[in-house]
Design a protein around this nucleic acid. Structure first.
Lengths: 260, 260
DNA sequence: TATTGTGAATGCATTCACAGCC
DNA sequence: GGCTGTGAATGCATTCACAATA
């Protein structure tokens, strides 16, 4: 009776005896033209917004002025419903029957991601990877200028890499505070990573991008993201193995569940 | 009456009129000592298994023989319930009241992740990043030997990097097929990435790790993972912005929802 | 007693499908 | 007619909390 949508729908009913008064259903669709949008955006959506932004920028360069969700989502490698939901977190910036204005969307995503400010970056560990990072030349799409480099190696101190002289890791707190670094990139060997991280934090760095294969311990107010080559490869390895198992029929799993 | 667990529990009841016959509840706890484990392991858990593996290896090196979920989970940066659930996907290899044997766990995780096989790696694009990757020296913890390098630059062709001579990107299909490459790493500029990817695929590569800031289009049977510096930085930027908004009270959100 | 293993509950994320609008 | 915006539904992932057990 109640059931309508969905293919196999099981009329799930909430009885909820104690009518929980704690904020269930945000409900409020936001009073209107509020300037400072915050509203909780799902973490997963944030990551995709960055992808949409790049695709949109490319489209803008090629002269596109409007784009439909179907087209944009295909280029971004997601389905259109997901794209529309993601964009809806920013507000209503599309036109029904038409699509989105590329420039408007670019502006809104940039604002949401905080790309209107600049975020100064420090790279610690000027080995192969650190070198590569330092030379990225101001980092993707402007907005992330590299303003400090650090290493332990005495031979490197003072040597400019990508225009910036390398400082000693002991000076991390001082230099970071002075230059107002907000993002620290850890590209050191694993053994050094935690101590480097601690120094970055004491230098006032709020966010850390960690390439070292260790789990960094940080105070609550610091955000860490990890890029881990070994983990990525091992995940791929898992999928190779899974696929191999599928091919030869050697995985008669008890239940009906297919592995894919 | 039915409600027991959970702090604010709302006795959610399924009425489910049409008693869906499609595999609900896998139920079968796996007949017993099945050798070829497959069972569907959640993607998110797979990623964490790789982390546990590293932590366990470090512990083993320091002479630990057993470890409790509490200790291991702390070192891996997750909570203990999650750890135990993740490990339970492998089977029951712990001892109640004691913990897990480090060596046993290492072995089981390696088997599950397919790390008993070797996975030959090719790196395409020998720029700053490619160089860094090629020099990783056989890649993390053995098991991922780099066996081919490619670039377009005529000056690089034939030059050995990390012991392996660079080949031309045109030879990707041939060389990859010959050497049995199973993982391709794309470290080229974005414009070249898709064509490189296509050649890797036609060379029989099953998995691709993509460092180029583009969404690669691949056939269904190929697995792609993406490492995107710009996206990572922009996610961090979002959190900086969010945090800044929290500080000054400028985000009177309509509903009660706190942003954190 | 200490700690695993795991159903059940909660909480996110994705997808569906259609009303609303241009 | 076409496309957005979004409730509602489904499906994953995480967490709780306790029975099982060495």
């Amino acid at each position: 009776m109640v059931a309508r949508r969905g293919r196999r729908n099981g009329a799930r009913v909430d009885i909820d005896a104690d009518n929980a008064p704690t904020a269930e259903m945000p409900a409020v669709t936001d009073g209107g033209a509020d300037p400072v949008r915050v509203k909780s955006i799902p973490e997963a959506a944030v990551a995709r917004l960055a992808v949409y932004l790049r695709v949109l920028s490319a489209m803008a360069e090629q002269g596109a002025t409007t784009v439909a969700s179907e087209e944009l989502s295909a280029a971004a490698g997601v389905n259109s419903a997901k794209l529309r939901k993601d964009l809806s977190y920013l507000g209503s910036y599309g036109t029904r029957g038409v699509g989105y204005e590329v420039q408007v969307l670019v502006g809104q995503i940039e604002r949401t991601l905080g790309l209107t400010r600049q975020h100064k970056v420090a790279v610690v560990g000027i080995g192969n990877l650190g070198h590569a990072l330092a030379n990225y030349g101001g980092f993707p799409g402007r907005g992330f200028p590299v303003e400090a480099l650090f290493d332990v190696d005495a031979d490197l101190i003072g040597v400019p890499v990508g225009g910036i002289p390398v400082s000693h890791v002991d000076d991390i707190p001082k230099v970071c505070a002075e230059r107002g670094i907000s993002i620290g990139v850890v590209a050191t060997p694993p053994t050094a990573a935690q101590s480097v991280c601690d120094r970055l934090v004491s230098g006032g760095v709020q966010c850390i991008l960690n390439f070292a294969p260790v789990v960094l311990q940080v105070p609550e107010h610091v955000e860490v993201r990890k890029v881990d080559l070994a983990v990525e490869l091992q995940i791929l390895s898992f999928h190779v193995a899974r696929r191999a198992d599928e091919k030869n029929g050697s995985h008669k799993v008890g239940n009906g569940m297919v592995v894919r």
